[in-house]
Amino acid sequence: MNSLRKTDLIMLVFGVALFIVLQGLITGRILNSFWQLNLIILCINIILSVSLNLINGYTGQFSLGHAGFMAIGAYVSVVLTTNFHWPFLIALLAGGAGAGFLGFLIGLPTLRLYGDYLAIATLGLGEIIRITIMNIEYVGGAAGFMNIPHNTTFTWAFFLMLATLFIIKNFVNSTHGRACIAIRENEIAAEAMGINTTKYKVMAFTIGAGFAGVAGGLFAHCFYIINPTSFTFMQSFNYLIMVVLGGLGSITGSIAGAFAVTFVSAGLASWPEFRMIIYALMLILLMFYRPQGLFGYIEITDFKIFSRFRGGRKS
């Protein structure tokens, strides 16, 4: 059997084992409902940070509109489950598709911009999405959308997170992912090597937005009510912090970043005013001692323990 497939299998077995342990802790009531909710939020944050990393880290297009796409996915899926009684999974995927489609439409014109200009444009677009939702009476406007079925369980969140990791990891390790990375490294050279840079920038943006939509759907079904204030640009910054903390261009890093931010935030639930101070300190220390992020470009599967399973490949 192929060595890469073996690594996949090991990761899958590890993932399922982790799930069994955590689910055991939940059913055994060792984790109270606060920590249960935080585990679900962690899974959602991992989906968001990994999908943002595809845009910001791998393709090098600085986007600050992730919360906007999350909002699209959230609202599309809650309308479908609450008003039309669609099955949960189909509604989530529809939310993801809606966010992805919007990402595609927005990506076509905005990805002509570079660096800071793109960041400002996506920041603005995220806000436009939020304010538009706030003014649509059908979804409750500023008061929020109510009576959402409480569908998101730890099982849903965990396995959708695994699926996201699997898909994005495979994407970046293919010729398509290499095309995106080439754009980050040197756009002119990438184009000269036969890569359609516009196509791949828009593709990365669409896929990233789509997964943000799925995460938004999961997030919305955690609570009985959602409202537009959950999707401000401060949320986009939160996901950006996770990505930068873990390392732009490392999936393992994004998981670690999501883990750190989620639990610092949960641990400080009683002192919310300290959160931003701690985030700021974390980032300052990071920039001093490890500017490439906790993991840089390195993945957990690059470590020696995995090369043992990998046959002849040097690393």
Binding site: T175, R178, A179, I181, A182, A190, M193, G194, I195
Partner: peptide, 8 residues
């Protein structure tokens, strides 16, 4: 490897 893109 990146330059093989159009031939994959």
């Amino acid at each position: 490897k990146i330059a093989y893109h159009s031939h994959v």
